[in-house]
C-alpha cells in the first residue's frame, strides 16, 4: 500500500527541483485568482457576451465530444482489435492533431471544408449552397478534430487491457458480437471511456487556434469562451480573468470527477 521507506527517500536536490516544478505549474493559477475582481464577478459573468460565449462553448463542446465518441469508438476498435496493413502508420497519423499546432489544424480544415478552395467545402457550396465555415458547425468540426485523438487513444488503451477471456466466456454462453460489445466490452471499458470522454471534452472546450482560423470569431455564433477571453483581455481585462477562472474551475471539476483514474488512488 504505502511506498517503501527506501524509495521515498530521494536525493535532496531532486526534491527541490520537484517543488519548483510544482510551483511552476501552480503559480499561474494563483495569478488568475489574484486578478479576479470578486465584487463584480457575477456581474461580469452574466454580461451578454460572456453568457453567449459560455452557452456556445457548452453546446459545441458537448456535440463535438459526442461526434468524437461516435467516430472514435469504432476507430479505436479497429486500431486495437483488427490486424491490417499499415495499422501502426494509421495510429500515428490519427494522433497527429494532438501534436499539430491548432492553427495549422484550422488551415487544414479550411483546405477541406472551405467554401472557395476546400476539397468538400466547394462542392457543398456549389451544389447545395451550404457554407460550413463561420458557423456553429465549423466550431464543432474544429473541436472534434482536436478532441478525437484523445478519445481514440484512451479507448484503444482500454480495449488492449481487457482480458479477452471475459469476451470469450460471453461468446461461449451464446452472445453475438453486438451483445458481447454492449454487455461485456463496454462495461469493462468504462474507466477508459470516462477518462477519454473527459479529456476530449476538456480539449474541445479549450480549443482556440483551429476555431478562430476555421470558424472565425463571431459573437454569439462562433465566439467560444477561449476566444471571448482573448478578445476581452484588451477591452475588459477583469472580465477576461473572471472567464478564465470559470474555465479553470471546469477543468478542476473534470479532474475531480476523474480522481479515481488519475490522482493515484491506487489500491
Amino acid at each position: 500500500m504505502s511506498t517503501s521507506s527506501v524509495t521515498s527517500r530521494i536525493p535532496r536536490g531532486l526534491g527541490v527541483l520537484g517543488a519548483i516544478g510544482a510551483a511552476f505549474l501552480l503559480l499561474p493559477l494563483v495569478g488568475i485568482v489574484r486578478r479576479v475582481a470578486w465584487s463584480s464577478l457575477w456581474q461580469q459573468l452574466t454580461s451578454p457576451q460572456i453568457t453567449e460565449a459560455l452557452r456556445l462553448s457548452v453546446t459545441a463542446s458537448v456535440v463535438a465530444t459526442l461526434c468524437a465518441l461516435i467516430l472514435g469508438f469504432p476507430l479505436a476498435w479497429l486500431l486495437a482489435r483488427v490486424n491490417f496493413r499499415g495499422r501502426s502508420l494509421l495510429r500515428a497519423l490519427v494522433t497527429l492533431p494532438m501534436v499539430m499546432p491548432p492553427v495549422v489544424g484550422g488551415i487544414a480544415l479550411l483546405g477541406v471544408y472551405g467554401r472557395t478552395n476546400g476539397l468538400l467545402g466547394s462542392f457543398l457550396f456549389d451544389t447545395f449552397g451550404v457554407q460550413i465555415t463561420f458557423s456553429l458547425t465549423a466550431v464543432v468540426i474544429a473541436e472534434t478534430f482536436v478532441a478525437l485523438p484523445f478519445l481514440v487513444l484512451a479507448i484503444e488503451g482500454g480495449l488492449r487491457s481487457i482480458d479477452p477471456r471475459h469476451e470469450e466466456a460471453a461468446a461461449v454462453m451464446g452472445a453475438g458480437p453486438w451483445q458481447r460489445m454492449s454487455l461485456v466490452t463496454i462495461r469493462l471499458l468504462r474507466p477508459s471511456l470516462i477518462a477519454g470522454i473527459a479529456v476530449a471534452w476538456a480539449r474541445a472546450l479549450g480549443e482556440f487556434g483551429a476555431t478562430i482560423t476555421f470558424a472565425g470569431n463571431i459573437e454569439g455564433r462562433t465566439q467560444t469562451t477561449p476566444l471571448a477571453v482573448y478578445m476581452l483581455l484588451e477591452s475588459e481585462p477583469e472580465a477576461a480573468y473572471a472567464l478564465s477562472l470559470v474555465l479553470v474551475l471546469v477543468c478542476v471539476g473534470v479532474l475531480f470527477a476523474l480522481r479515481d483514474q488519475w490522482l493515484g488512488r491506487r489500491s
Partner: peptide, 9 residues
C-alpha cells in the same frame, strides 16, 4: 448585425 461580423484580432 453582429451575427454577421467576424472579429479579427
Amino acid at each position: 448585425p453582429e451575427s454577421n461580423v467576424s472579429r479579427g484580432v
